[in-house]
Nucleic acid binder design. Structure first.
Lengths: 90, 90
DNA sequence: GATTTCCATAAGTCAACACTTATAGAGGAG
DNA sequence: CTCCTCTATAAGTGTTGACTTATGGAAATC
């Protein structure tokens, strides 16, 4: 859980999640989308994707040389549940 | 919204929210609760409370010299809604 | 099999930000 | 009025972590 909100605590990573909310995307497309918004390198995005993966906020699957990323609904649900518990203490 | 997840992206602040989820508490009680978990100064907590306030994740009200903090359900709901939109893109 | 594309990792740099100590200020208590 | 409690702000420091360039490796293309 710690890793989840640490991962969400960066604007670039949140932007990546927004891009991926449009559906499964190869890493290269994510890079292009982020670079359309401002100068950032491919390795920077790759590192962010790794953090999101380790936090279980995204999933990957390989297809040839491409890595297809998607938002991980389970991870997002866990984050939502944690927030809900704060507002509504059992 | 940026400020909300930036604020949530720190473990100490998340711990403060957990403490406050138990109900309205004066700042001093929050300090005591956090210090029970590890060495941290009163000003550090005060600064975190300010960040949480600016992100609208907590509310304050003064009672004499005490400042009573509570979790802000609206702010938490906004955060949840944002996460929900990611998983379930309209 | 050489080249090219796609992505990840390595290593190093720099700035943001989470801390600290010191202090100010506002409200009860004596 | 004075003292003490409670909390916030000021100022300075150190470390984390978000970036960079450089490189490695795996799969498609020719």
């Amino acid at each position: 859980m710690e890793a989840v909100f640490d991962a969400l605590g960066d604007g670039t990573r949140r932007h990546i999640l927004v891009v991926l909310s449009g559906g499964e995307q190869p890493a290269g497309t994510v890079v292009a989308a982020l670079q359309a918004r401002g100068a950032i390198s491919q390795p920077a995005i790759s590192q962010h994707l790794r953090v999101l993966r380790e936090a279980e906020l995204v999933t990957v699957r390989a297809e040839g040389t491409r890595r297809l990323y998607s938002v991980d609904a389970d991870g997002l649900a866990r984050a939502q549940a944690w927030l809900a518990a704060l507002a509504d203490p059992l």
